[in-house]
Each structure stands twice: as structure tokens, then as C-alpha cells.
């Protein structure tokens, strides 16, 4: 059986977005986003423009998974942070439990500032995600409990 689905309610989503918005401001970053370790985007904040956040989320998760695999080969549990610095744009990724906090920044900021600010919010984000993941499941309010075969078939018409 697949894992239990993660359900993110509106209140939780806006709380996460508020934390990301503050981090973005404090770190002078372009975009900040939160991604599940499996590559699912959870929340994004910032100048998205034409940025393909879905692909970026998937590739960041792949990147963390690959470097995590390397870490284990040399006897480390994982590498908690990853940084990629480009000529103009850079990416900093922090592993927070089962989530990845990704900060995209340019010359207006610096790696040191992004690292510091990311670290400052990681505990808060970890606690929020724990609450989301461990929330009691109430199947009665699930929109999918009453899903019919016709509903599913209609997707493939």
C-alpha cells in the first residue's frame, strides 16, 4: 500500500506561506519554497515569473536524494544543506525532516545571510509540518470518500 496521503488545509497553507514570506524578506531572496522530499511542491513565495517551480521541486528532491545517498556511502546520515552558486543566481537547500526548504537568491543577498535566515525558521517549519503530517485523519470530510467510478472515468474522456 502507498503511504498515507498528506492533507494540507487552508489555514496551515497560509501559515506556511507567512513563514516563507518573512524568510524571503529577511534573506532578500527572490523565491522561497517548501517541497516534500518526494518532490511535491507544498508552498511557494516570491517572484515566480516564468520559473518552472514544479520541475525545480522535482529536481531539488532528486538532488537531495542523490547527495543523501552519497552521504550514506561515506558514513553520514545525510547532508543537511546544499548550496549551488551561479554567476548571478544561486540556490540554497536545507533538509528539514521530510521537507526541503529551497531559497533562490541573486546578488541582492548572500549565501551567509540565506543560510542564517533559513536556519532560524527551520525549527518553526519542522513543528508546523509535524502538525500537518500527524493531524488525525477524518475521512468523513475527505472530498474523495464519495468519489465514484464515473468521476474517475470522466478524467479520461
Amino acid at each position: 500500500m502507498a503511504d498515507t496521503p498528506i492533507t494540507l488545509h487552508e489555514r496551515q497553507y497560509h501559515q506556511l506561506k507567512a513563514v516563507l514570506a518573512r524568510l524571503r524578506m529577511d534573506s532578500s531572496a527572490r523565491v522561497v519554497f517548501l517541497v516534500d522530499k518526494d518532490g511535491q511542491e507544498i508552498a511557494v513565495q516570491g517572484e515566480i515569473g516564468n520559473l518552472d517551480t514544479t520541475s525545480l521541486a522535482s529536481l531539488a528532491a532528486g538532488n537531495v536524494a542523490a547527495t543523501g545517498g552519497m552521504a550514506q556511502l561515506i558514513g553520514e546520515k545525510e547532508f543537511p544543506t546544499l548550496s549551488h552558486e551561479g554567476a548571478h543566481e544561486s540556490i540554497h537547500i536545507s533538509v528539514i525532516g521530510r521537507m526541503l526548504l529551497i531559497v533562490v537568491f541573486d546578488e541582492r543577498s548572500s549565501l551567509g545571510l540565506v543560510k542564517l535566515r533559513s536556519k532560524q525558521v527551520s525549527q518553526q517549519l519542522a513543528a508546523m509540518m509535524e502538525e500537518i503530517v500527524n493531524a488525525p485523519k477524518d475521512d468523513s470530510d475527505s472530498p474523495f470518500a464519495g468519489i465514484t467510478d464515473e468521476d474517475i472515468d470522466s478524467l479520461f474522456q
Binding site: 503511504d3 496521503p5 488545509h9 518526494d38 511535491q40
Partner: peptide, 15 residues
């Protein structure tokens, strides 16, 4: 893992 987002009203699944 299926991810259900009530705010953006999206279900995401991995195949």
C-alpha cells in the same frame, strides 16, 4: 505520496 492541498485545491500523485 499523495499530497492533497485544500488551499490550491490540488491532488498530486507520483507514478
Amino acid at each position: 505520496m499523495t499530497f492533497i492541498n485544500y488551499a490550491s485545491r490540488e491532488i498530486n500523485c507520483k507514478i
